[in-house]
């Protein structure tokens, strides 16, 4: 790995360990290997959002050309958010693309991703289905995101009604995540979801 990239990642990790975010538990950062090319981040869902108290794991890949090019980051933990793919975890965030600047750090990027959880940008979506729900049925969106946080990210708030609908499909022999995606996509309309799954 290019010298400057490894050196910078080392330095960043050293600094981030002393930061208030680590101390306050807002996020975590750990190395996956010893070559400084792969890290794992974890951000806590911001309060007063559907992601509250959730723990979201992030895959962080540092390119050889870092910091001249941005790190590649995606959600490992499944999340229901207009700017994150519910399938791949890919994130649509300008600073991870053309708005990247070499002075940005892993710390500032994690903070930006956390801010994205507080304030989605549905007009620049990564997941069109989620973005449409966000705009057209904001309360269903909030409940769906809360449900996903509860199921996949250890979020504390359960949506009992949604759990029950997933259970109905499970009893029909549908795989759990597939059932959840079908219901989430169709605004928790059990009939439409069933129809889609069995057509």
């Amino acid at each position: 790995m290019a010298n400057i990239a490894a050196k910078r990642v080392k330095r960043e990790i050293k600094e981030v360990m002393k930061s208030e975010e680590i101390m306050g538990g807002a996020f975590k950062l750990e190395l996956i290997n010893n070559s400084w090319t792969e890290l794992q981040g974890e951000i806590t869902g911001p309060p007063d959002t559907p992601y509250e108290s959730g723990k979201f794991l992030l895959e962080i890949k540092v390119p050889e050309t870092y910091p001249f090019n941005p790190p590649k980051i995606r959600f490992i933990t499944k999340i229901w958010h207009p700017n994150v793919s519910s399938v791949t975890g890919a994130i649509c965030l300008d600073i991870l693309k053309d708005q990247w600047a070499a002075a940005l750090t892993l710390r500032t990027v994690l903070l930006s991703i956390q801010a994205l959880l507080s304030e989605a940008e549905p007009d620049d979506p990564q997941d069109a289905v989620v973005a449409r729900q966000y705009k057209e049925y904001p309360s269903i969106f909030a409940m769906t995101a809360t449900h996903w946080t509860n199921v996949y990210a250890e979020g504390k708030k359960a949506i009992v009604d949604y759990n029950r609908r997933v259970q109905v499909l499970l009893e029909m022999g549908v795989e759990e995540h597939q059932a959840r995606v079908a219901l989430s996509t169709h605004n928790w309309n059990l009939e439409v979801a069933t129809e889609e799954l069995f057509s």
Binding site: R8, K10, I13, K14, E30, L31, L39, P67, A103
Partner: peptide, 28 residues
């Protein structure tokens, strides 16, 4: 990820606040 992770450089000398004023904003 402990600061003394494999390959970590010996810390200390770069922690003085006035020296940080002269750090490059790219390589830090």
């Amino acid at each position: 990820a402990s600061p003394s992770a494999p390959g970590g450089d010996a810390g200390g000398e770069d922690d003085k606040p006035d020296e940080r004023m002269l750090e490059c904003n790219i390589c830090l």
